[in-house]
Computed example of a mutant assay.
Amino acid sequence: MSRSVSRIAAALLASGAVVAMAFPASAGESVAQPHRSPVVLGDIQYNSPGPDTRSQRSLNGEWVTVTNNSRRPVNLRGWTLTNSHHQSYRFHSLRLGAHKSVKVHTGSGIDNRRHVHEGRRDHIWGNRHDTATLRDARGQRADTESWGGHHRR
Rank of each mutant, 00 (worst) to 15 (best):
P51A: 14
T53L: 12
E118D: 04
L134G: 04
A142W: 02
N127T: 09
V116S: 08
L13G: 04
D136N: 11
S37A: 07
H99M: 13
R120G: 03
H99A: 08
T106M: 15
G42W: 05
E29W: 02
V102P: 10
N112L: 03
T131K: 14
T65P: 11
G149T: 12
R135K: 05
T67L: 15
M21L: 06
A20M: 07
R71F: 08
D136L: 05
G148C: 12
S48G: 03
D130T: 00
N60Q: 15
G107I: 06
V66M: 06
A32S: 09
I44K: 01
R95K: 06
H151M: 05
T133L: 08
L134Y: 08
Y89V: 00
S48P: 05
W125N: 10
G97H: 12
R128K: 12
R3M: 06
D122S: 07
V104Q: 07
V5L: 15
P51I: 13
H150L: 15
R152D: 10
S37G: 10
S101E: 12
P24H: 14
R120E: 02
R90F: 08
P24N: 08
R120T: 06
Y89W: 13
A14D: 03
L81F: 09
G78V: 08
R138P: 00
R114W: 00
R121S: 08
V74G: 01
S37E: 05
G126E: 02
S101I: 00
A9E: 11
V39S: 03
R7S: 04
R72K: 02
G42C: 11
K100I: 00
V19T: 06
D143N: 03
G50F: 05
L96G: 04
T53M: 05
N69W: 08
S4Q: 15
Y46K: 11
E62M: 04
N47G: 12
K100L: 06
Q45R: 11
R128I: 05
E118A: 09
P24L: 15
T133Q: 08
R121E: 08
R135Y: 05
M21H: 09
V102Y: 10
S26D: 02
R153D: 08
G28F: 01
V5A: 15
G28Y: 06
Y46A: 13
R141M: 09
L41E: 07
V5P: 01
D143S: 01
Q33Y: 13
E29N: 06
L96T: 03
I124H: 09
W63P: 13
G126Y: 00
N68L: 01
A11I: 00
P49I: 05
Y46L: 08
A22W: 14
R90P: 01
V74C: 01
S48T: 05
Q140M: 03
L94P: 14
R72N: 01
